[in-house]
Design a protein around this nucleic acid. Structure first.
Length: 275
DNA sequence: CTTGTGCCCTGCCAGC
DNA sequence: TGCTGGCAGGGCACAA
């Protein structure tokens, strides 16, 4: 589900409320979430949150004993912080709750996930999670410079769109921002990575960075039900140029936007501008 | 090693 | 109205 800007928005929200709070109890509300995720409520009780950060689309909660929780929201996962003692937001329809963390001050953190793809894992102190080792730097981090990005593209014949989605090569980009940045860079999504010139590769990285930063400024993109921790929607969806606009005129030239299939997922692009 | 496919799960929507 | 197939802001296991 969320891509880098949405995860960043969520992390900032969590970082503003969680540090300093001490866990009183953890309740696993969905057995599937508990299976293989190594979360032991008894080992978490008494721990205090130290910080919340992000690598790629993963969220890392550092705890005071050096251990951490590593979460991935996948398609529909959400964290909801409820300062009240009453149920979250007081709303009746609280479906799909998978985990409840109660704090000593009476506030609570919920993990909600309709499609149940999301994961949360407790990582022991001193251990670098395998997810982190496997995740490439994101385009906004110093680790992803022009040379590394260009080398990443040049090293594969796969379609550039598919490469942008591969978290082992560059992290944080999902389907929306992959489509949008290729449109802005005027690059055909079906071209092989190794066919891009150095100038095109630089242009693409520049557009990827620009769109991620803009989206963060707008608190992310709300397509169906994305919400930040305080339940606010992002508004970057109003700036999308090609995503989910099949048949609608390109904002640049009027040509109808085309949808194709690449690696089991949709790609939208303008066949005239991206050529 | 690379590349492609199926699948995890639930809900929504277009089309019949 | 009701049913059905397609699809979803992701990533993994597995096969060729």
């Amino acid at each position: 589900m969320p891509e880098l800007p949405e995860v960043e928005t969520i992390v900032r929200g969590l970082a503003s409320v969680l540090p300093g709070r001490t866990i009183q109890a953890v309740r696993i509300l969905d057995p599937k979430l508990a299976a293989g995720l190594s979360i032991s409520p008894s080992r978490l009780a008494g721990r205090t949150f130290v910080s919340v950060s992000r690598f790629g689309k993963y969220i890392r909660f550092a705890l005071d004993d050096g251990s951490s929780l590593v979460a991935h929201l996948r398609m529909t996962g959400k964290f909801v912080y409820s300062p009240d003692v009453a149920p979250p937001g007081g709303r009746p329809a609280e479906r799909h709750l998978r985990l409840e963390v109660s704090f000593s001050d009476g506030s609570r953190l919920f993990f909600r996930d309709m499609r149940r793809f999301g994961t949360i894992r407790h990582v022991p102190a001193g251990e670098t999670p395998a997810e982190e080792q496997a995740t490439a730097p994101d385009p906004l981090s110093p680790g992803m410079d022009e040379a590394r990005f260009a080398g990443m593209l040049a090293g594969s014949r796969q379609a550039v769109k598919v490469l942008l989605l591969d978290q082992h090569r560059v992290s944080g980009i999902g389907n929306i921002y992959a489509c949008e940045s290729l449109f802005r860079a005027k690059i055909d999504p079906e071209r092989g990575g190794n066919t891009l010139s150095l100038a095109e590769s630089r242009r693409l990285l520049r557009e990827v960075r620009a769109i991620l930063r803009e989206a963060i400024r707008h608190n992310g993109t709300t397509i169906s039900d994305f919400r930040s921790v305080d339940d606010k929607t992002g508004d970057f969806q109003n700036w999308l140029r090609v995503y989910d606009r099949t048949g609608q005129p390109c904002r640049g030239c009027g040509t109808p936007i085309v949808r194709i299939r690449q690696g089991q997922r949709s790609t939208w692009f303008c066949p005239h501008c991206q050529h």
